[in-house]
């Protein structure tokens, strides 16, 4: 019986992950190294990969800063009042509950050229929707819960006593954060960073809606794969997908390592 379950687990794992991955690799390799590199070195493919990289970088930095900050407020700021904290705490999970496409749509409705805000920024010459800012916003919306949900439980489990001890020893909050709190939440933050990178790299729906998928301008790696598939250019689609998959696997390994260190 136990054997059966283990076998079944492996079968599902193979069916869902290994076989598709192998198919992508084989597809990308259909014309050997030449075809693969040609597909990736297409100027708009390089631009799309660069775009993805840029979004990942900005989103990860912002999400780490704001995520850690919000986690600290939720865990420590008793002056905020229980009710407000509970409300914010449940709002944090909103992006988990809302489909990314709808998240993207909300951004278009709020900040699109037809909206009040969008028109205002437009008059200043700042493009938001169908440009980088909205893509960053959309990705930030999708990834926001990841950091908070990683760090908040660590902070709650840590408790306030070590920080209180530091305060009775004369240390103020900034010093206490770096000397006392940070070493304890460090691995949680790193884990949150890895999750954020992985998630923002792979985001498709929200980005597709707010970006308009404009080649050489707002196209990202995932929306390029989508376009290549639409154009029956399977080799190119597989090649770009392989790059994304390779980074994801590297992240996965990093994540495993971070997880084992998190306990320390």
């Amino acid at each position: 019986m136990r054997r059966l379950w283990i076998g079944l687990t492996y079968a599902v794992f193979g069916l869902l992950i290994v076989i598709p991955l192998a198919r992508i690799a084989v597809g990308a390799w259909a014309e050997g190294w030449g075809g693969l590199s040609a597909a990736i070195l297409r100027p708009h493919a390089l631009h799309a990969l660069g775009m993805t990289g840029l979004i990942v970088l900005i989103v990860t930095v912002l999400n780490t800063l704001f995520g850690v900050m919000l986690a600290i407020y939720l865990a420590r700021a008793s002056w905020l009042g229980d009710r407000l904290r509970r409300l914010v705490n449940s709002l944090v999970d909103l992006p988990f509950a809302v489909s990314p496409v709808i998240g993207g749509l909300m951004i278009v409705l709020l900040l699109g050229p037809q909206s009040v805000l969008g028109a205002f920024f437009g008059s200043l010459g700042i493009e938001i929707v169908y440009a980088l800012p909205a893509m960053v916003l959309a990705t930030l919306f999708i990834t926001f819960p990841l950091m908070v949900r990683e760090v908040l439980p660590v902070l709650q489990e840590l408790g306030t006593q070590q920080e209180e001890a530091a305060s009775t020893l004369g240390a103020y909050s900034w010093y206490t954060f770096w000397q006392v709190t940070w070493p304890s939440i460090r691995w949680g933050v790193i884990y949150g960073v890895v999750l954020t990178v992985a998630r923002s790299m792979g985001e498709f729906g929200a980005v597709l809606i707010v970006s308009g998928n404009i080649m050489n301008k707002t196209q990202t790696a995932t929306t390029l794969v989508y376009q290549d598939v639409e154009n029956f250019n399977l080799l190119a689609a597989n090649a770009v997908a392989l790059v994304l998959a390779a980074v994801s696997i590297a992240l996965l390994l990093l994540m495993e390592w971070a997880k084992t260190r998190r306990g320390h």
Binding site: Q162, E164, A165, A166, S167, T168, G170, A171, Q179, S184
Partner: peptide, 20 residues
């Protein structure tokens, strides 16, 4: 006055040592 400015020492019930 905050604890930092009171010139006190506090030993917590479960010690609250800095564990790292």
């Amino acid at each position: 006055l905050p604890p930092q400015e009171r010139g006190i020492g506090f030993v917590f019930q479960n010690y609250a040592l800095f564990k790292h």
